[in-house]
């Protein structure tokens, strides 16, 4: 009945939509990479509670900690970055994230409710409130 009203494959609006989305994504990536250098802090959270918090420069050599007994989430810390070495979860998102080296980056293991974040990095403004 409505053959003449069949939707097109791509329209101009589709391209506008895609352009807006790609620009948003690139803008967020740029923002994330802004604060570079300076002191980095490792924050490990389990069930939204901080279980480990230390400055990256205080870590000498390779340090490994096991955060979750059930999933055996092993986080490996090195002076230049942090990564989830292994986890018994099914999706392995945390391990596949790889090494995080910059402020604002994170590796998350959803099944184990564990997250590793890098915070800090001396930018001119740390936090803008209000």
């Amino acid at each position: 009945m409505n053959n003449n009203k069949e939707r097109k494959k791509v329209t101009v609006l589709d391209f506008v939509l895609i352009a807006v989305l790609v620009c948003t994504a690139l803008f967020i990536i740029l923002q994330q990479n802004k604060s570079d250098g300076g002191e980095l802090e490792v924050v490990v959270k389990k069930n939204s509670e901080v279980v480990f918090n230390r400055s990256l420069s205080d870590i000498s050599g390779v340090t490994e900690i096991c955060v979750d007994e059930e999933f055996n989430v092993i986080i490996c810390m090195e002076p230049d970055g942090v990564y989830v070495k292994s986890s018994d979860c099914s999706d392995k998102v945390c391990v596949n994230t790889g090494k995080i080296t910059k402020s604002g980056q994170a590796a998350v293991c959803l099944p184990a409710h564990v997250s590793v974040e890098l915070k800090g990095g001396k930018s001119e403004v740390d936090v803008v409130v209000g």
């Binding site: 494959k9 791509v10 895609i18 989305l21 790609v22 948003t24 994504a25 690139l26 967020i28 990536i29 994330q32 959270k45 939204s48 604002g104 980056q105 994170a106 998350v108 959803l110 409710h113 997250s115 590793v116 974040e117």
Partner: peptide, 29 residues
């Protein structure tokens, strides 16, 4: 995942948007 884990997951957001543009275009085609 934000509700479960907090702000750490937001780091993934731009990559998820970018990859969705490709996978979504595939679904659409």
């Amino acid at each position: 995942s934000f509700a479960m884990m907090g702000s750490a997951v937001l780091f993934y957001s731009p990559f998820l948007i970018l990859i969705a543009v490709f996978t979504g275009a595939f679904t659409g085609i």
